[in-house]
Each structure stands twice: as structure tokens, then as C-alpha cells.
Simulated scan of single mutants.
Amino acid sequence: MPLALDGSAGSNRPSTGRAQISANNDLDAIRAWLSRFVDTRTTFENYRKEAERLVLWSVVMLGKPLASLTHEDCLRYQRFLADPQPAATWVAGGGRKHARTDARWRPFYGPLSPASQRQAIVILNALFSWLVQAGYLAGNPLSLSRQRARQAAPHITRYLEPSIWQEVKDYIATMPRDTARESAHAYRVRWLFTLLYLGGLRIAEVGANNMGQFSVRRDVDGTMRWWLTVHGKGGKERLIPATREMMVELSRYRQHLGLSALPSPNEDTPLVLPIGATTANGGTQTCAPLTRAALHAIVKEVFAGAAVKLRERDPSAAARADILEQASAHWLRH
């Protein structure tokens, strides 16, 4: 990057004072900020994405480094997020994701929704504030933005009422099992939805934890019970009570895979396995867990299938089928 654009001589760099980080250019300063989130993959990737988008826009569209951005520049960037133009420069064709090494890679896949725009600005405001605190910037150009008035807590609207949840369960129960692959998929779906609904796990937590985290512990009343220790968002650990229904479903899934009914301590079998990830003797191969994208795709496929079945059975239930088509894994936590 040319010296004039690397931020080392940016107009928002402090003239006095001692910086708390060794970075002397924008990229190194951003790396220092991101280093605080390396243990939380999802957060790290989201924060890096927003910082990268802003730096690219600043250099390409304004010809200035991050360390020279003004409040007016930030307002202009907010408008840009709603419609990244020229699209050929900024938006991947057809909204498809490409590897960063691919010439077709672009920072955006289309205009950001209002919610995504707000989230981007929240992340960038945190970046600027930290860089000011670290002594790399003299001021936060986003701090002058109008603050939204505090509002009452919103009502939870993204959830599945019992009758719609029953449609999902009925659909899962009737999934085809004519081939070995169909059967494996049906067992996997049933167990995945058990984790999401009964356990309240996030999609990322399903992929990041394993069966060895089930354990028997003594309850406050002295009863021995099964629990699932989940390492979740922000590196926090929480205990989830593994109900009898959850343990029955776990045993059903494991026995279909040829495993023992119950997991052993420190077992590293992923909570949900890719199809075909078992050996002939019933052991599990060393395999990577399903990605968040793959798990999301499975969940959306089930919701869509349940919606189709509902429409076929009851044409007057179009509104309820629409809800199913909109649903995502997060709805199950509600």
C-alpha cells in the first residue's frame, strides 16, 4: 500500500501522547484490534469483514487511509452500505461467495439490510473507539453520530408456536429412509433438531462441541443427572441439563452410527457427524464437524420441506407455512 494510504501520516493521528500499541499504520492497528477476538472465530470473522470493507472503500473511493476519515466520510460510507456502487467493483455476481484468491471475489454480496447496516456501524464504532483508547487515533469520527433513543425491550416474534413446531416434528418423522444415506440423514436431522430445540444450542455451538462433553453430575438434591457442557459465544462455558428425552435421542443417534449408546468422558466425536464418518468396526474416524453453513442448510431444508407438506395437506394454512419458510435455527432457541 502506498505510504500516503497506509495511515502512518493520517490526519486523525495524534500529534502528542504515547500509543499503547506498536502499530504505526492502519493495517497493523486493525490487526492489533482483531487479535483480541482470535479465540472466537465467528466474532473475529465478522469484525475482520467490516474493517476490511471500510478500508477498501476508503482507499478505493476516497483515496485516503482509515486514519484520515472524517465524520462526513463515515456518513457517506453508511449510505454506501445500503447500495454498494459500482456493483461490478463491490458486489459478487449473482450473490455467490468466492474464495478470496478467486478473481471474482468481492467484499459484498448485495446491499446490506437496515439491520446489517446498523451492525456494521456498531462494529466500526467499536474499532474506532478502541484505536482512540490505544492512542493510534486522535478521535472517533463515528462518535458524533446521532444516538438512537433507548427503546423498550422488543417482543420476541421469531419463534415457533407449538402447533408449527409439531409440523416440523411430523415432517422429520416421515423423512425417507429407503437408502442408507437417506436413513443416516434422517437420524442426523432428528438429533440436530433435538440439540437446537431441547438444548437451545446455537448453530456455531453444535459444530464447536463434542459428545465427550456430556457427563453425569450430582444435582443439588443429590440425584445423579446428565449434563452437557457447552463452550459457547464469547468463550463462555455453560451447563445444559440433558433431559431424559435428549439422552434417548442421543442414544438413538449414536447406536445408528454403530457407537455405544452413551458417550465416554473426553470422547472427541463431534455432536453432529458428516454422513459416512464411521468406520466398519463402529468407531468414528477423525473428521471435521459439519460447518455452520452446512448445518444452516440442513435446518432451512427441513423448514422448507415442512412448509411444503403443510401446504399440500391444508391449502388454507398458507400463513403458517410462510412462517416455516422464514424460520431459522435461532428461532428454536426462543
Rank of each mutant, 00 (worst) to 15 (best):
T223S: 07
S129R: 14
Y187R: 11
L310D: 01
T174R: 14
K309T: 14
T291N: 06
L69W: 13
R104D: 04
A134M: 11
F44R: 03
W191I: 08
R53M: 01
A280Q: 13
W57C: 07
W165N: 06
R217S: 07
A99L: 09
W33Y: 15
S22Y: 06
N24H: 10
K233V: 14
G93D: 11
V230Y: 00
I240L: 14
M247F: 07
M211N: 04
N12R: 11
R36Y: 10
M224V: 00
R158T: 13
R106E: 03
Q133V: 10
P65T: 07
A29T: 13
T286V: 15
R252M: 02
S143Y: 03
A307M: 10
E50T: 15
Q166F: 01
M211D: 03
L198W: 12
L195K: 02
S8L: 10
S143N: 08
N12S: 09
Y187A: 14
V59H: 07
D178Y: 00
Q78S: 08
C74Y: 01
L160D: 04
R252A: 07
I30Q: 10
A294W: 08
R53S: 02
H155P: 00
T194V: 13
A126I: 10
T291R: 08
A51Q: 09
E72S: 14
H330C: 05
R158G: 09
C74P: 00
T70S: 15
A9P: 00
L228C: 06
S116D: 09
A92K: 06
D268Q: 13
